[in-house]
């Protein structure tokens, strides 16, 4: 029986350490001490843009296709294909684009950070930094967090665009039960700027947690080449759980008490 519970126990046991480590990074970013390494921050932002943007947009695009497809067939089945926009708008903006963004952030950026920092730890580069008098957490982790805060809001808004475009393609061009104008009328009617802001908050919460978790597991990796791989795998478990929990809490907080739909009084 204990073998079945060892993984949840391990995750719970790491929560305290992880919280402490995350608080330290957040403190370094919010107190602006990270600006001492502005150059490194900008370099990390550049790395994030060149290596991860296209993959994240790609996944969001595929999820957008999926939302449009289910929306088109579902509204056809209830005899109101003109209203596919309702399903697509809510599915894209409120739920699945943040989730897809979180999944790909965890897979591409989160595990990337663990692999990078983990191999630095294994080859004693982090100790070398400490010996040279650098604050290694500030230099390695805080710069990455600030870089992701600089880049990701813009990347996320653009990825919402990719999702919307994909839904349009499936509903109007592929299934074709509704005209372009009819679809877009309903689609834009069922969303408003606060929805976009809430969606952005949800996604940024996911991204922050993913970067912090990645930094924790990478910085504290140990045990040779095997250790880096295991740490990467473990970070993914925590990331997936956190993405889903944040998605649920965000929905409950932002839309739980108020559907924000242009229906009724």
């Amino acid at each position: 029986m204990s073998a079945w519970l060892s993984q949840p126990k391990e995750i719970l046991a790491a929560v305290g350490e992880q919280g402490k480590f995350s608080a330290r990074i957040l403190g370094q970013v919010l107190s602006l001490r990270v600006l001492r390494f502005l150059g490194e921050t900008l370099r990390q932002a550049g790395v994030l843009i060149t290596s991860s943007t296209v993959v994240i947009w790609g996944l969001v695009f595929v999820i957008g296709l999926q939302c449009g497809l289910e929306g088109a067939y579902f509204t056809r089945s209830i005899g109101s294909p003109a209203y596919a926009g309702v399903f697509a708008a809510w599915c894209d903006l409120r739920e699945l684009v943040p989730y897809a963004f979180g999944y790909m952030m965890a897979a591409k950026v989160g595990t990337g950070i663990v692999a990078e920092l983990g191999s630095m730890r294994i080859s004693d580069e982090i100790d070398a930094l400490e010996v040279m008098g650098f604050d290694s957490v500030l230099f390695l982790c805080a710069t990455r967090l600030l870089a992701s805060w600089l880049v990701l809001p813009f990347m996320y808004v653009a990825s919402i665009g990719a999702g919307f475009f994909a839904s349009y393609l499936t509903v109007v061009e592929q299934v074709g039960d509704v005209s372009s104008g009819g679809y877009l009328l309903i689609f834009w009617m069922f969303q408003n700027p606060p929805d976009l802001l809430y969606s952005l908050i949800k996604a940024m919460a996911m991204a922050t947690i993913i970067v912090l978790v990645g930094c924790y597991y990478g910085y504290n990796a140990g045990g040779g080449p095997v250790g880096v791989g295991t740490a990467t795998a473990k970070s993914m478990v925590v990331n997936i759980i956190m993405v889903h929990v944040i998605g649920m809490l965000g929905t409950q907080l932002f839309w739980g008490a108020n559907p924000r739909a242009p229906i009724g009084g």
């Binding site: 692999a115 990078e116 080449p225 990467t232 795998a233």
Partner: peptide, 15 residues
């Protein structure tokens, strides 16, 4: 490619 290689392999595999 050593320790870094395993981490990178996991990263690419998930993506």
């Amino acid at each position: 490619g050593g320790a870094e290689g395993v981490g990178r392999a996991v990263n690419q595999a998930v993506v």
